[in-house]
Write a protein that binds this DNA or RNA. Structure first.
Lengths: 150, 150
DNA sequence: CTTTTTATTGTAAAATCTTATCAATATATT
DNA sequence: AATATATTGATAAGATTTTACAATAAAAAG
């Protein structure tokens, strides 16, 4: 997981080619901006960012491209439950799960190898092979535990 | 976790009372229908079910009541990532996670005590106390593994 | 190079899901 | 009963996402 922008662009271009789709200036720019973000961006977030560089781009194009990036497995969807689809990129960014404080809403990205192993075992028990997973842990961080005990 | 419909109705009524809200015929019916469902229902699913019994009920009331049920911790939201909020009830139904086949979309409800334990441990590592979690495992079931290997 | 075919784009309309508004009604309180 | 408060259904409004379509750009064919 140490790909450069060029590498990922090639991956996306190849993905597009396989589906008889074309790499365009718009798609290129959207990918570049998307990879330059940290954390989770909604289509609208990304649209705003891109408009600063090119205000001729259409919002629908951003939606369409993010869907393609998810299909190409360059982006994954993260759902916070507010009805907005957010995306994060896999490159320059490892797999992780989410630890979320219900008090202050802070998000911490976590990974636990033991859990990952047990997930595979659990799936196997049902005859499944695992390709991915999403795990969200909700609770209270240290600060908010104290606050709520007042 | 062996409450009857009456028990849950009382729980909901008490919850409402605490918030200066009232138990009404509509809320009663919605709760009853909701508890009679298995699996995950969207507000719209439930609305269709209820209309068969009472076609004077409004869609907004179903939305409103499901939100209240979630607040009362009688229902929890499940997100499948298609932009539709689905609810499942906790009573007559234990906590579980989700094993989902990407081939045929079958959903299996699973629980693994070891994983549950490790989740608590992981949260503790960051000073968190856990209140709940959501885990979705995506993969291929036995059948679909064979199909996709053709 | 042209010509022709195919994919892509931006705009705007439409679709979808959810929330807010509001007058009429039902429930609780006095 | 009279008054106050909450609830309802219908509908409008909001928000997010998708679709339709004519104009444009890119690729393939000649």
């Amino acid at each position: 997981m140490n790909e450069t922008l060029e590498d990922v662009t090639t991956i996306f271009t190849d993905f597009l080619a396989k589906k008889n789709l074309r790499m365009t200036n718009q798609r290129n720019l959207i990918l570049k901006m998307f990879l330059s973000t940290e954390k989770h961006v909604s289509s609208d977030d990304l649209y705003s960012l891109i408009r600063k560089q090119d205000n001729t781009i259409g919002q629908a194009t951003v939606y369409r491209t993010l869907k393609l990036l998810a299909e190409a497995e360059i982006a994954t969807i993260v759902e916070f439950g507010d009805g907005v689809a957010r995306y994060e990129h896999i490159y320059l960014h490892q797999h992780h799960d989410h630890l979320i404080c219900e008090g202050c809403n802070i998000h911490i990205e976590v990974v636990d190898d033991d859990i990952e192993r047990l997930q595979v075992r659990l799936a196997k028990k049902y005859g499944f092979t695992l390709t991915s997973h999403k795990m969200y842990l909700y609770g209270k961080c240290e600060k908010c535990q104290n606050i709520s005990s007042l």
